[in-house]
Design a protein around this nucleic acid. Structure first.
Lengths: 99, 99
DNA sequence: CAAACACATCGACGATCATCAATGTCTAGG
DNA sequence: CCTAGACATTGATGATCGTCGATGTGTTTG
């Protein structure tokens, strides 16, 4: 990273990091990633936390809104999947800031 | 990343991401990293933003408190330097969550 | 249609955050 | 000492955030 981040680029990246900057959302993301087919249904995720169902739904929405989770509804259930490309890009960007 | 993040690990990592999750702090970090000797004095950083001096000082403190910036005072000036190891660890962790 | 279930949305509340102006602390020069 | 400069700390304010209970939406089953 020779050139410092432009203001616009920083303002585009910060929301992604803000979405990740919560213990519950970090665990949600890794739980989905660790799941069998790379996707997990909300019912499974709810049971992993001591939080209300609306709260989990809220966190999943935050991760979905910034493009870190894909969402697909099948029947009564909703499945979330990690957008690994977005996560990889973000990771290399962070590691790359230090050169 | 086979195993999902433990709650304790998530709670240890989230503050680092929270520190990064701000456009001003992202730019501060990359400005320091892009500086000649890998360190920059606060006076240089202040001029790069349209913010008050206490605000910049606050952001630098946040980055320092989580261990992303080193601080050294020489004479009247204070120099900050990026802790590249911490940044690299965080970056690979993020990229690694998706497998 | 009705009831049950999975999940989302809404409204509210306390907590945290980014920012500023004012003030404090330390260092260097006169 | 005293003044000026570089940076930090404090206190206040408006905005955002995480969480909850209550309610809404859509789907399956009887």
């Amino acid at each position: 990273m020779k050139e410092p981040l432009s203001q616009q680029r920083a303002e585009r990246i910060a929301p992604l990091l803000k979405a990740l900057a919560d213990p519950v959302r970090l665990r949600l993301l890794s739980l989905v990633a660790a799941h069998a087919d790379g996707e997990a249904c909300v019912c499974d995720l709810n049971d992993a936390f001591d939080l209300s169902q609306p709260t989990i739904s809220h966190h999943l929405k935050v991760l979905h809104d910034v493009g870190l989770l894909d969402r697909s509804k099948r029947g009564v259930w909703v499945y979330y999947a990690v957008r690994r490309e977005a996560l990889a890009d973000l990771g290399s960007l962070i590691g790359g800031v230090g050169a």
